[in-house]
Nucleic acid binder design. Structure first.
Lengths: 339, 339
DNA sequence: CTGAAAGCGCTTACAG
DNA sequence: CTGAAAGCGCTTACAG
């Protein structure tokens, strides 16, 4: 009926039959664990097995293996949205590292919605993933404690949460770098496009900035910090609010490159030019930043590496180890928008 | 040893034991197929089964199901890169549609490299996906004929290939729309930033444009078409080449929004302003286009819908049907960059 | 060094 | 309407 299925894949039994030996012997030879593989069969048998396996293109059925070993070598990754370049690049790191250790990853979008987040996690658990990488953690959510209670292995990526293992940029430090840069450039009236208050990235970058700013002797009125969406439109709206507020800043720090681009647009609508009439600094140093008509200063965070580290941390959690949060160090790229 | 595994999940056997009936009966009741489920058990038995399943949070083991049914309900998706917003959004459509019909999807990046493409496809096949969605098809590749020969179910997405089922934007029509628009605006000297010649998107958009341009009475020298990478830097380089070539265009059509942004940067470096000194039109109408400092005219393609359609086509291929390519219609969004 | 058996959690003809 | 059995493709203690 289903004439589209390729002919039946070759199995251990096929190999065993052709070699005239028992399937269990074939299994032991092909067993990935070298400790078991060694001494599992005579050198000559082992060689014959491996040769035939290669010749027939044998590839073990992962469903069968999982059923037996109770390990799927599957990872679940949940992100706010893959169309956010930052998460897409982190996921590239995840995929690369996971493939390197024989894992495959599912990714799914939660749109930063608590209900969706929970639904997607349950979907991955129903697929029997060995562990989860959560890229959309909310500071006020109750999902993480629940997963912990259910003893489900997970690590956070991108956004941290006190008490749970995570791989993130040192966002506080990133904010500090921007404060130091703008202060050194002589700016004294600044404002922050702060992002979503439920995201540690937004909170940490903003607090790193403002605390360092005060330590340097600067001051910032309350209206100079505007929470916003992370995207271009959110940045534009926040910038408009700031420009209308009387704060009259000479520099804007947006905690996200896309928000920074929106801010540049808002400036232009007022007849101002980013970098000339008002400095703008973004965050993440996405590939776009350097290539914009007015190149954007931005804090570079090691996005792909964050993804790779998340996978490494998760493997340790899967081994039952206790894992501390990892903070990766950012650097500041100064360009025309704030030079 | 592994103290991080949550307690054993509840199985059919557990349900059967608690209800004092045979596991096969439980299976028949819970069987998704309503035809089988009806008449599989007395109404009262069926109700008891369903109630206990809900109470204990039973969820069938997909690995076991797959092993038995030889269907994984897994889809493999390969894209050039998820950090390309266009593909990320198409994937959101894929994920949504797949989830709706009980499928899960793997995505993987091929970086538009033939070797990587092949490796990733084999990886997905080793995972026993039911079918593939290929988003990085090369016009000159030999992977597709090979997959066809091996009777592996697949459909194309984003880029088409003659003779294979695909879900794409009507890219030829998209190019035509831009030609008509620029011609109507009075432009007579135009150039095209054409993208990668191995991608049908690039070829179709470019040929749609130039053929319509000629039909309208326009002419274009050979140097006015410059093949390029799809990203911002590629667009910048191509624009610089065009501006240095003596073509002296009053309008640029870039087959990709990011390339268009690069082109805007190149104009600015020469002291020119997009939309004033030279019109710029992009393709895909990504979320950035409308929000740029100078809003970018762009051909809107239904990206998420392309992903959804790809899944629907694949399900038909899996049923053994013959499937024709689907072309989704684009529309042009005119903004300041070409108004 | 190799074989034989049991079993992971399901589904599905086959009986009755 | 329900039960009992077989088997999907593996792995792994247990013998010998």
């Amino acid at each position: 009926m289903d004439n589209h299925t390729s002919e039946r894949a070759v199995t251990l039994k096929d190999l065993a039959r052709q070699l005239g030996i028992h399937p269990s012997t074939v299994s032991r030879v092909l067993h990935s664990d070298p400790v078991v593989a060694r001494g599992a069969a005579s050198e000559s048998t082992a060689r014959r097995v491996r040769e035939l396996a290669a010749e027939l293109g044998y590839s073990p059925d992962p469903q069968a293996t999982s059923l037996r070993t109770r390990r799927t070598h599957l990872l679940g990754v949940v992100v706010p949205r893959l169309s956010d370049l930052v998460l897409a690049i982190m996921y590239e790191g995840v995929e690369q590292e996971a493939a390197g250790i024989g894992y495959s990853a599912f990714v799914t979008n939660s749109r930063d919605d608590a209900g969706e987040q929970r639904r997607k996690v349950e979907l991955m658990l129903a697929r029997r993933v060995d562990g989860l990488i959560i890229g959309d953690s909310h500071l006020d959510g109750d999902l993480l404690p629940e997963l912990h209670r259910r003893a489900i292995p997970f690590v956070l990526m991108n956004r941290r949460h006190p008490g749970f293992p995570s791989a993130t940029c040192d966002d506080v430090r990133g904010g500090e770098l921007v404060a130091e840069h703008l202060w050194a450039q002589g700016h004294r009236k600044v404002a922050v496009i702060a992002g979503e208050p439920y995201a540690s990235t937004a909170v940490d970058r903003t607090s790193g900035f403002s605390e360092r700013w005060r330590a340097l002797g600067g001051s910032m009125p309350e209206e100079a910090i505007v929470w916003s969406r992370f995207d271009t439109q959110g940045g534009r709206e926040a910038a408009e609010k700031i420009l209308a507020s009387g704060v009259d800043p000479t520099a804007l720090f947006a905690v996200n490159d896309f928000a920074a681009i929106g801010a540049m647009g808002a400036l232009r609508s007022r007849g101002m030019t980013a970098g000339q009439d008002c400095a703008v600094v973004g965050f993440n140093d996405t590939s776009l930043a350097a290539e914009l008509p007015i190149p954007l200063s931005s804090v570079r965070s090691p996005m792909a590496e964050i993804g790779r580290v998340a996978v490494r941390l998760l493997t340790r959690v899967l081994r039952g180890e206790t894992v501390e949060p990892v903070l990766l160090q950012p650097t500041l790229q100064v360009r025309e928008s704030s030079a």
